[in-house]
């Protein structure tokens, strides 16, 4: 199955370009995974209360910043991962099925408080940022 897929793509496209794009994506994905595992390793060693993936994010950023990793080496796979982010959340979201308490009146109340809280958070955050950015504009005048 794993081998058949790129082969099929190769035959369908009748050319090298799609095959190459696919290979590039896979290699870039593997490189991102190297940073992911590096992050997990460091988390395991230090027992720091931060998920390994966040360490991985930091390491990748540092590597990009100092030019150890070129943007072109990870950009395509990164774009794909972020574009399909919603898909990766779905199994976790389906986990709600384990909590029948979330159905009915109780669940409805919870949704309402999430809505009120979300409006408050967006409002406060936005007003603070807007205020500071307007003040900066006036300062520079």
């Amino acid at each position: 199955m794993k081998r058949a897929l790129p082969k099929a793509l190769f035959v369908c496209s009748g050319g090298v370009s799609i095959y190459k794009t696919f290979l590039k994506l896979v290699l870039q994905f593997l490189l991102i995974n190297v940073f992911f595992f590096l992050g997990i390793g460091v988390q395991q060693l230090t027992q720091f209360p931060i998920p390994g993936s966040i360490f991985g994010l930091l390491f990748l950023f540092i590597a990009l910043y100092f030019g150890w990793v070129k943007l072109e080496w990870v950009e395509a796979a990164g774009k794909w991962l972020l574009a399909e982010l919603l898909l990766f959340f779905i199994p976790a979201a389906v986990g709600i099925v384990q909590y029948p308490e979330m159905a009915g009146w109780n669940g409805f109340q919870i949704l309402i408080i999430i809505m009120i809280s979300t409006i408050l958070v967006m409002g406060v955050t936005g007003i603070v940022a807007d205020f500071l950015s307007k003040r900066r504009k006036e300062d520079s005048k």
């Binding site: 994905f29 991102i32 995974n33 940073f35 992911f36 992050g39 997990i40 998920p51 390994g52 993936s53 966040i54 991985g56 994010l57 930091l58 990748l60 950023f61 990009l64 910043y65 943007l71 990870v74 950009e75 796979a77 990164g78 774009k79 991962l81 972020l82 399909e84 982010l85 898909l87 990766f88 959340f89 779905i90 199994p91 976790a92």
Partner: peptide
């Protein structure tokens, strides 16, 4: 599918950079 959440989190380094 859930595994991909890890690399996807790492990939946020790219837009930040």
């Amino acid at each position: 599918i859930s595994y991909f959440l890890g690399p996807a989190t790492v990939a946020f380094a790219i837009p930040i950079y």
